[in-house]
Design a binder for these strands. Structure first.
Lengths: 225, 225
DNA sequence: ACATATTATCATGGAACTATGACGAAATTG
DNA sequence: CAATTTCGTCATAGTTCCATGATAATATGT
């Protein structure tokens, strides 16, 4: 396996060196940034950074701001370094999508353990994809593959299929579908579902038959035996 | 929707507080227990706990034992917290009916994600089904199986059979059937029930005989001895 | 056994529902 | 702001289902 790239962001060079040393010893590739702006630049210029270790306290752009910025475009794992183990900070961080949290001073053992834990987690694809009967639904990428073949779905079609798949085997009334796939304030014709179902079925080829019509009730997604 | 109740069991109060904080922020109702016995007491005294988060390592009654105990009486979702990610522990856990598994140290993000995943699963599996004499009625899927064989019923037929099955052993007049299976505003011929009963009987094969005619009164669903 | 009341069965027309294609409105993109 | 895609609506055609009424079969009481 190739070396994993870790971006270490801290204004103190001593701290950067410390962290880097331990990580390099564990065979990671370490890139340094000495402030928030540089971190963001580096992250978006190098497209293959696997983890960011981010100091909270930095002049100008602090860690939270950097995190917020990056989270708008990426789900890269982020570990925050902070001096005070203030709980409110932690809560804020997790809201921003911080994956882990290390308070200074920390032992190298803790550092390496957290890094490895986060990396282990991030490589395991979490709940954002499902596979049913040869239909692979990638929620984060908003993309569907059928038997390995990517198919193009519009936004609504994707949402509708997602709803079907997450409720497989359950009979769904049109009303229920409207309330869950459409917004609650949508009071249009329930027949519009028919149209979307039609398109879905045709785009899904043979597997379109997995969407069954339940006469007088609605639809049901079910994989044939 | 009402708040879901989560029981958090750990001997370390620090850990309980940590878990509780994040769950409370996600609008769950959290109850704490500091050992296995207390957990079991609480679970069986409060009858409406939706999920249990259980530390493995606890003095006296450990997590496995608590899990085993509770599983004898309940299918409540259980998430195990464990320090060592020893694989044997995991396997043991899944044998006991553990739904998820989180190894320490974990991030709250992971915690919340797992909790939500487990809850989603467990509510989807709301078994709206009944089984009588080899007839399996799955309301949520709007589907009927007889001796494992799926049979196609129309909407009315399904409703009628459901009504029969939920009132098994009870003699039902046509009037009663009309009022319950048909809409209130239906004032047509009660003879239409005969037709539906006929179809049901024929579609149900030998088990169609479970629908008995009560001469001069109506029908009754009853499983033969 | 007979007359009568009730239920079973069948065929059928119509009602209710769904599928489909086309079109214009709305949103998105360049 | 033009081009493109997506979305909701509608009309039409196609399908399934259901109520009805007629007739056959069965049960009940005398």
């Amino acid at each position: 396996m190739e070396k994993l790239k870790i971006l270490v962001v801290d204004d103190e060079s001593r701290m950067r060196k410390l962290v880097k040393d331990f990580l390099v010893r564990k065979n990671y590739d370490v890139i340094e940034a000495e402030n928030g702006e540089q971190a963001i630049d580096l992250f978006f210029s190098k497209k293959d950074i696997d983890l960011i270790i981010l100091d909270v306290m930095m002049p100008k752009l602090d860690g939270w701001q950097v995190c917020r910025e990056i989270r708008q475009y990426s789900k890269v794992p982020i570990i925050m370094l902070t001096a005070k183990s203030d709980e409110k900070d932690e809560l804020l961080g997790f809201d921003l999508g911080v994956d882990e949290y290390i308070s200074k001073p920390f032992s190298p053992k803790i550092l390496v353990a957290r890094v490895e834990a986060v990396l282990r987690r991030s490589t395991v694809t979490e709940e954002d994809s499902m596979e049913v009967g040869g239909i692979l639904l990638d929620k984060s990428a908003h993309q569907v593959k059928i038997d390995g073949q990517e198919i193009d779905l519009s936004f609504k079609e994707f949402e509708l299929l997602t709803y079907f798949v997450t409720n497989q085997g359950v009979a769904l009334s049109r009303e229920k579908i409207l309330n869950n796939v459409w917004n609650y304030d949508y009071f249009g014709d329930a027949r519009t579902i028919d149209t979307h179902v039609k398109k879905l079925r045709s785009k899904m080829g043979p597997k379109g038959d997995f969407i069954k019509t339940i006469w007088g009730l609605g639809y049901k997604f079910e994989v044939d035996a």
